[in-house]
Simulated scan of single mutants.
Amino acid sequence: MSWSAVLYILLGASAGGFVNGLAGSGTALFALGFLLIVLDPVSAVALVTLMSVLTGLQGLWEVRAAVTQNLSRLLRFIVPGLLGVPVGITLLALINAETLKLVIAILLIVYGGFFSFRTNLPRFERRTPVLDSGVGLVGGVLGGMASLSGALPLIWCSMRPWPKAETRAVLQPFNVAVLGTTALMLWSRGAYDRDTVTAFLIALPASLLAAQVGLMVFRRISDTMFRRLLIGLSLLLGLGILIRVLI
């Protein structure tokens, strides 16, 4: 592997690790742009999926108290999400994944663009167990179809006026669970070949270190600032998906 390839892998790992540590989501958005320069799409997705899971474990430890205190709420997202992954993989053969990505990108751009420039943030306060489960299920389906498991939960959680630890205690475990399942399925299909494993061993230290830097920033921002961060991330995620679809 050339030194330039190593550099791009390290840049992608650092960018993805930092945003994972900061927000608990969005690793692929910031990492894939670098990784796709030197890796084929399957290897890049396999690498960023496994990287998201392992760096996400640090974020899980950060909000472990909030996870245990709100375990029933978390399970409303995770259980349907895991059930949705194989459904999404099955539907992939019937639905055009690029069209689906385009629809999701537009949704994220409209939502993120609208609320990024408003003084008042959305406040959806009442308990919605059925809707929570629906968001988790659709997130799992989107993960299986187009590797977009975090898109809908990101929007949904940014609408809730929860403390930042509670918000992250939904997003981080959900992403780790769904992406962990995806990584196992990719492994069963032979995605983790020698080149991918080599790239992963290069990326992992940088990703873990950058995630720690992101966690340091997370600890210092307010609950409101964290919600604004998620809304801004929705906009960036939508733009990133749109650009990849159009190119």
Rank of each mutant, 00 (worst) to 15 (best):
V42Q: 13
L209H: 03
L60R: 00
V6Q: 13
G81I: 03
S43F: 01
V38E: 11
S14P: 10
R73F: 02
V48L: 04
P205Y: 14
M225D: 09
G214T: 10
G150A: 06
M145C: 05
G112S: 07
G113W: 03
L107R: 01
L201G: 10
V170M: 11
T119I: 09
C157N: 12
A28E: 01
M1V: 08
V138T: 13
L152R: 12
T27R: 02
R127V: 09
I241D: 07
I221E: 08
L209G: 03
D195R: 14
G214P: 07
L152S: 12
L32D: 11
Q69E: 11
V103H: 02
L94C: 12
P41A: 11
G33S: 11
S116G: 09
L230Y: 03
G214S: 13
L148A: 15
S43W: 00
L91S: 04
V45L: 15
T182N: 15
L50E: 09
G17M: 15
E98Y: 12
S52L: 13
V178C: 12
G84C: 11
I89C: 00
A169M: 11
R194H: 13
S222G: 05
L83H: 06
G56C: 11
V217P: 02
G240D: 09
G26E: 06
V85C: 09
A93K: 11
L100D: 04
L131E: 08
T99K: 12
L236Y: 05
R126T: 04
A97W: 01
P163F: 06
N20Q: 14
T198N: 13
T99D: 14
G139Q: 07
D193R: 07
I89M: 06
V130M: 01
C157K: 12
G143T: 01
